[in-house]
Amino acid sequence: MSNGGSDMRSLWRGPLLAWIVLMGLFAISLGSAYIPLGHGNVAVNLLIAAVMLAVLATFLMDLKNAKSLVRIVAMAGLFWIMMMFSLTFSDYLTRW
């Protein structure tokens, strides 16, 4: 019984910590919007988003303990979203 309780605690600990970190980053992101940094605001927000992505993939998706096939699938998802963004920006960044 006690083992079960310990297992449950260890099961929840990682995701809970990750969630707390994500909430903290969210608060920083929100707060940074009120600091006038010019173009720096975008850079800061993109940096925070990248950290959030890393936390999410590593701890919530548990890729740090995943098999290589699962990691490849996750990388494929990242590749697809990069493709989506880069080709969309081939339009937005070249309009005149």
Binding site: W80, L87, S90, D91, Y92, T94, R95, W96
Partner: peptide, 22 residues
Amino acid sequence: GFMVWGHHMFVAGQSPFANLVF
């Protein structure tokens, strides 16, 4: 097949460069 969607938007206001890429 995932990289060609912009050919549906050649006359929609997409940039000429993007038209070329797609």
